[in-house]
Simulated scan of single mutants.
Amino acid sequence: MPIILRLYLRAVRLRKTSLLILALAFIAGSATLAYALEPSTFGTWFNALYWVLTTMATVGYGDYYAKTAAGKTFTIFLYIFGIGLLSLIIGKIVDSVAAIHRQREAGKLMYQGKDHVIVINWSKKAHYAIEEILSYSSGAGVVLIDESDKHPLPDRHEVHFVSGDPSADEVLERANLRGARAAIIFSDARIDEPALVDGKTLLIASSIERIAPDIHTTAEISQDKHIANFRHVKVNEFVLSHDAVSRLAVRSALQQGNSDIFNQLLSRQHGDDIYEIPVRPDWRTYGDAFQALLREGATLLSDRGDLTINRKLSDPIPKEARLFAVTDEATYRTISAGKR
Rank of each mutant, 00 (worst) to 15 (best):
I4Y: 13
L5A: 14
R6D: 09
R6K: 07
L7Y: 06
L9E: 12
L9V: 11
V12S: 04
V12T: 06
K16R: 11
T17G: 12
T17W: 15
T17S: 11
L19G: 03
L20G: 02
I21N: 05
I21K: 15
L22E: 03
L22S: 07
A23M: 11
A23D: 11
A23V: 14
A25D: 06
I27F: 01
A28Y: 15
A28K: 08
A28E: 13
S30V: 01
T32P: 04
A34R: 05
A34F: 12
Y35P: 10
A36C: 09
A36D: 04
L37I: 15
P39I: 12
S40Q: 15
T41R: 06
T41V: 08
T41S: 13
T41F: 13
G43W: 01
W45P: 08
N47T: 10
L49W: 15
L49Y: 06
V52E: 00
L53D: 00
T54H: 03
T55E: 05
A57W: 01
T58H: 14
Y61D: 08
G62V: 01
G62A: 00
D63K: 03
K67P: 09
T68D: 06
K72N: 08
T73C: 14
T75H: 14
I76F: 12
I76Q: 07
I76K: 07
L78N: 04
L78R: 01
L78D: 02
F81H: 08
G82H: 00
G82S: 02
I83E: 01
I83G: 02
I83C: 05
L85R: 00
L86N: 00
L86E: 01
S87T: 06
L88V: 01
I89T: 08
I90A: 04
I90S: 05
G91L: 10
G91A: 10
V97N: 07
A98L: 15
A99W: 03
A99C: 05
I100N: 13
I100V: 13
Q103H: 11
E105I: 10
E105G: 15
A106Q: 08
G107S: 05
K108I: 13
Y111R: 02
Q112E: 12
G113A: 06
G113S: 03
K114P: 13
D115S: 09
D115G: 09
D115N: 10
D115P: 11
V117W: 10
V117E: 07
I118Q: 07
I118K: 10
V119M: 03
V119E: 03
